[in-house]
Amino acid sequence: MSGRDRTLLPAAAAWLDEGRKIAVATVIGTWGSAPQPAGSLLIIDADGNFIGSVSGGCVEGEVVMEAQGVIKSGETKILEYGVADETAWKVGLACGGAIRILLEPVTGEGS
């Protein structure tokens, strides 16, 4: 699924309808050969379900984990992954690119 699949936002709205707590991760900057352009979205719920994509699979696992904390704390975070970063290799951003991600809780309903 592409990071900006037209079904993504309706699906996220449906998650809210079901009372699920969610966070939104947005690619806000890319360098080098990042696979998803700025604006790509990943929607995550409190159970670790996710739709969309921010990297073509490289850092999704890490972002989904970070999202759990963001949903609990209600605080927005900016995450950075790049090849120069030791953790980036660990989570597998081996494409030679770097990305910056805005990770924010969706608030105002049941929270």
Binding site: P10, V106, T107, E109
Partner: peptide, 29 residues
């Protein structure tokens, strides 16, 4: 992000209305 913003985005897309979401990275607005 407020839930209503996300819902509004979904509704704008359904109605084929172009929109830009501006996120102030410092203030959070």
């Amino acid at each position: 992000m407020k839930a209503e913003v996300l819902r509004q985005l979904a509704s704008d897309l359904a109605q084929r209305r172009a929109v830009v979401l501006a996120s102030d990275l410092k203030s959070g607005a």
